[in-house]
Every structure is written in structure tokens, then in C-alpha cells.
């Protein structure tokens, strides 16, 4: 378990947090390399299906980041997103996903320091929890072994 490295999926808004990642990069800031970034056009584009799909396929943590309230490129995408996220985070934690697996942040494209700080926070929170124990879709070869095809 010592060598275990968390796999975190980061969904970053094109207009802010994604830019912050660029800025952090060109500023040579140091941060943990565990986040795989997926660029989305707006935090409002974020569908709960993306989060569930990532969790089902084995992501240890998920992080969604968008523009500060009032700064949305599309005026109000992040306001809608905020309500969706609040309800969704509560629901999946209610069903047994540990708090600390799913993170949200507002990071503008100028906030490279905040970007590095949040990525640190997210990574250490997920590391503290360790690998996921439940809810990862069974790999086909394991299903074959488990003889699902016999009587339920």
C-alpha cells in the first residue's frame, strides 16, 4: 500500500481553473501529479453522470473547479452548477462515498497559487482516505471468475 498513488480526475472550466493550471505551470509551481485534468467549457456543463462514471471506473477522487460566482463566462453557469453540486455531493455522501473524495472549488485564471494549494488539499484528502473499497465496476475477467452466470 506504500506505493499506492491516488488517481484523481479534475474537471476544470476552460475559462478559469484550466487557465490557472497553465499559469501555475509556467510559473514553475510545484504540486502533486495525481490529478488527470479534463477540460470542460463551464462548471455548468458538469453532469453528475461524469462524476459517477469516473467513480465507477475507479477514480479515487474527483475535483470540479469553475469560476467564482459572478465571473462566469456565460453569466450564470456556475450559479446553476453550485446548486447541482450541493445536492449531488450530499446525495453521494449519503449513499456511502466518503466526504473527501469529491471536491469543488472556484479558481480564477489569475489564481495559480490557489490552484496549487487546492490541488495539494485535494490530493492529501484523497490520500488520507486510501484506495476506494466499494463501487468500482467489476472487471470482466473477475466477473467470469465469480460465476455470475449461475443462479443468483
Amino acid at each position: 500500500m506504500k506505493d499506492w498513488k491516488p488517481r484523481i480526475v479534475g474537471f476544470l472550466c476552460n475559462w478559469c481553473s484550466y487557465g490557472a493550471a497553465d499559469l501555475a505551470g509556467v510559473s514553475r509551481m510545484q504540486y502533486p501529479p495525481n490529478v488527470r485534468v479534463i477540460r470542460i467549457p463551464c462548471s455548468g456543463r458538469m453532469s453528475p453522470k461524469f462524476i459517477l462514471a469516473a467513480f465507477m471506473k475507479g477514480a479515487d477522487g474527483i475535483w470540479v473547479s469553475g469560476c467564482h460566482p459572478g465571473d462566469c463566462h456565460y453569466m450564470e453557469g456556475n450559479y446553476y452548477a453550485r446548486r447541482k453540486f450541493a445536492l449531488f455531493k450530499n446525495l453521494i455522501e449519503y449513499m456511502g462515498i466518503e466526504p473527501g473524495r469529491l471536491h469543488f472549488s472556484w479558481i480564477s485564471s489569475a489564481e495559480s497559487t490557489k490552484f496549487a494549494r487546492v490541488i495539494n488539499e485535494v490530493t492529501s484528502a484523497v490520500k488520507a482516505l486510501g484506495p476506494r473499497k466499494h463501487g468500482i465496476k467489476t472487471m470482466p475477467d473477475e466477473l467470469v471468475k465469480s460465476k455470475i452466470s449461475m443462479a443468483k
Binding site: I148, S149, A151, K152
Partner: peptide, 9 residues
């Protein structure tokens, strides 16, 4: 389902 399982590989 004992002969015709709901899911069968």
C-alpha cells in the same frame, strides 16, 4: 433464473 439467469456471461 436458475436455468436462464437474468445476466449470463
Amino acid at each position: 433464473s436458475l436455468v436462464f439467469p437474468q445476466t449470463e456471461i
